[in-house]
Simulated scan of single mutants.
Amino acid sequence: MRNFKTIAIALVVALTTLTATAQDKKINTSKSTIAWVGKKVTGQHSGTISFKDGVLTFKSGKLTGGSFTVDMASINVTDIKAGEGKEKLEGHLKADDFFGTSNNPTSKLVFKSVKAKSANVYTVTADLTMKNITKPVTFDLTVNKNSATTTFKVDRTKYDIKYGSGSFFDGLGDKAIYDEFDLTVNLVF
């Protein structure tokens, strides 16, 4: 009987220790940023998009997980001034042939695996959901004391965003838009 009590106490202590070392760090959504660049044959456009929420999970000081929600209606074009086409491009990006923000107001990124690559750098494989389509993405995330950064590419056609894609439409010439767009993410927590 005494051995059973000892084992039970050891199990409770072990579970408490494991749970106590896990720490969720919520991101500061007003200081965290997502910058995007979309390229086409004749140039490129850039802008920002905002987080709704997000959290990174750490155990014993090491990154173990994370999840983020992005406000798709916050798409902002930064390379064109108001009155010079900015509103038109933002409206097109929010329309159904791009991100369809009226029916898909958010996108999600959920970490599935995190592997240490080097000091403070982790290789993350995550599920990215846009337009109710979920596909895996992999990127390196550099984690500092109260921040984390990454840059990675997303193939928009995997999320049924085919507008202007030379992979799906012939004869686009200089109207073709490249399938991949670049994201630069700066997290502050």
Rank of each mutant, 00 (worst) to 15 (best):
K117L: 11
F68P: 07
S74F: 07
D127M: 04
L89I: 08
I133W: 15
G83A: 10
A82H: 12
K108R: 08
G100M: 03
D71L: 09
L89H: 13
G83H: 09
T125Q: 13
E90Q: 15
G85W: 00
D71Q: 11
E87P: 14
D96C: 09
L109M: 14
V114Q: 04
I75D: 00
N132C: 08
L128H: 05
F98Q: 00
F111H: 08
S107R: 05
V77L: 05
P105T: 00
V70N: 05
F68D: 03
S107P: 11
G100Q: 08
K131G: 09
A73E: 07
E90F: 02
E87K: 14
V70A: 10
D97C: 12
V121E: 08
A116I: 11
K131L: 14
A82D: 06
T78H: 05
T125M: 13
G91T: 09
K131T: 05
T129R: 10
V124T: 03
K88W: 00
K112S: 08
E90H: 14
D127I: 00
A126Y: 09
E87A: 12
G91A: 12
M72E: 04
N132Y: 07
P105E: 00
T69Y: 01
T123W: 03
T123V: 08
M72F: 07
K115C: 07
K108Q: 11
K86H: 02
N120I: 06
T78Q: 04
K88Y: 07
T123R: 14
D96Y: 10
F99R: 11
M72W: 06
K88E: 11
S74D: 03
G91M: 06
T69M: 04
A126K: 12
T125S: 12
E87T: 03
K94F: 03
T123D: 11
T106W: 01
K131R: 15
S107T: 07
T78Y: 04
F98S: 06
